[in-house]
Design a protein around this nucleic acid. Structure first.
Lengths: 141, 141
DNA sequence: ATGTATGCAAAACATTTGCACCTGG
DNA sequence: CCAGGTGCAAATGTTTTGCATACAT
């Protein structure tokens, strides 16, 4: 019994082929961050006949179950990543769309302090740093 | 000659009625943060016959001209605010959608430091803190 | 068996665009 | 006058949904 099956059961989700396959794609893909469309294409590449609507549904369920996190890049385009339990924020390359992760305790603390100052009971936060990655600076593209 | 006319000319934009009206709405509205739809409805309320497509075009031009900034809230919904030259980030109430602003030097510095560490030439960043505002905690809604 | 999940096509949503007409300078 | 701006409707891109069928337990 593979780990993935247990993950799904634990999440209260029936173990179905589309769910297993989507999970597998997320695990084996070279890219840690994938859009629903990316996952859909990857499934087609492996010969799976799974509808795009199902990919969206499955990813949304996975998000609810805490198996993946959804990032909202520049308004109107979401990408998903396998949840590893460790909170982190993202750096995005505006040229090649590479996504890197980071975590900074100082920023985390300041955010809590600011919410408190403003009388907000903080629920979450989203931080994206945009820039040109090392590779793209070198390639000058 | 009103201030708004000069703003538009300085931005290289012809002074047209739709542009003046949109700018006026942004200036006189109770809400500092408005979506294109909000602006459109406010225009209708004042009896102006301006198309939604034009509102989008005008707001996008204003953004390009530096007259307004566009915020991308939770992926797939943009709001605009008059640009006042002072950079700031946002706190959003998940209950009542109130938007508050803040600016934290420590966070700004850390972001630059992180980009540098990762070899990124930082172009911009977006930071949103979500939570429940003081009023909504009191009202318990 | 039976309640869920899936596939497909259509709907929804925010935003953009093509094009004929109108307007500001 | 004429480049640029506008209104309308249609197109866009992403995500969601309705419904009949298929599947997991």
């Amino acid at each position: 019994m593979s780990m993935e099956r247990q993950d799904l059961r634990k999440a209260g989700l029936k173990v179905t082929l589309p769910r297993l396959k989507v999970l597998e794609i997320l695990e084996v893909s070279d890219h840690r961050h994938m859009s629903a469309e990316d996952v859909y294409k990857a499934l087609l590449d492996t010969g799976e006949e799974i509808g795009l609507a199902t990919v969206y549904r499955v990813l949304t369920q996975f998000e609810g179950a805490g198996l993946v996190s959804r990032l909202s890049i520049d308004g109107g385009h979401a990408v998903f990543e396998l949840e590893d339990g460790a909170h982190h924020d993202h750096l995005l390359c505006v040229k090649c769309n590479r996504i890197e992760e980071f975590m900074d305790e100082v920023i985390e603390e300041r955010q809590h302090a600011i919410a408190k100052e403003k009388g907000f009971q903080m629920t979450e936060h989203s931080l994206y740093i945009y820039g040109i990655c090392k590779q793209c600076q070198k390639d000058n593209n």
